[in-house]
Simulated scan of single mutants.
Amino acid sequence: MQSPDIPDTPPIGQPCGHYGGSPMELGADRNIGLLIKHVHILLHRVIDLKAIPLGLTANQWRPLLLIEHKGVDTPAEMARAMGVDTGAVTRTLDRLESKGFLRRERVPEDRRVVKIVLTDSGREVAARILPAIAETLNIHLQGFSEAEIAMLFALLKRMIVNGEQHLLQQTAEHAPEP
Rank of each mutant, 00 (worst) to 15 (best):
V84T: 02
R158T: 11
K37F: 09
V39N: 05
P7W: 15
A58W: 15
T136Y: 02
M151R: 15
E68R: 09
L130T: 15
A172G: 05
K157Q: 14
K99Q: 13
P63E: 06
P4F: 03
L49Y: 14
M159H: 10
Q14H: 10
L137V: 15
L152G: 13
G27T: 10
S22D: 02
H166P: 00
G143T: 08
I52A: 11
Y19C: 01
V161K: 13
G163M: 05
G55W: 04
R111F: 12
L64N: 04
L137M: 11
I52G: 00
S3N: 12
R45C: 02
A79I: 07
L93I: 07
M24V: 10
L156H: 14
V72S: 01
T171I: 13
G100Q: 08
R112N: 08
A51D: 01
I36M: 07
R30P: 06
H140N: 11
M24T: 08
L93Y: 03
G55R: 06
G100V: 12
P53T: 01
D120Y: 15
V84S: 01
H40T: 10
R104H: 07
G21S: 08
Y19R: 02
L43D: 03
L130E: 08
I116H: 01
P176T: 00
H44E: 08
I160S: 08
A175G: 00
L34T: 03
L96K: 01
S145K: 11
V46G: 00
L137Q: 11
E109M: 14
L96E: 01
Q14F: 12
T57F: 15
P11H: 10
G122H: 01
W61A: 04
G17F: 04
G20I: 00
L56M: 11
C16Q: 12
L156M: 13
R112E: 06
I139V: 07
K50T: 05
H40S: 08
R128E: 05
K157R: 15
V125E: 03
A147W: 11
H140W: 12
R128V: 03
I52D: 03
L42N: 06
F153N: 12
L64K: 06
G21V: 08
P11G: 11
H140M: 13
L118I: 13
S145Y: 12
E173Q: 13
V89L: 07
T119D: 02
T86H: 10
Q165T: 03
R80T: 14
L43Q: 11
F101D: 02
P10A: 14
M82E: 00
L167E: 04
E135A: 10
H69Y: 14
I12Y: 07
G71E: 08
A172Y: 07
P75F: 00
E177A: 03
N138I: 04
K115T: 07
I52Y: 13
L141A: 12
E77P: 03
A150F: 11
R30L: 12
L130F: 09
T119S: 08
E109I: 15
L152A: 15
S121L: 13
R30N: 10
I12C: 11
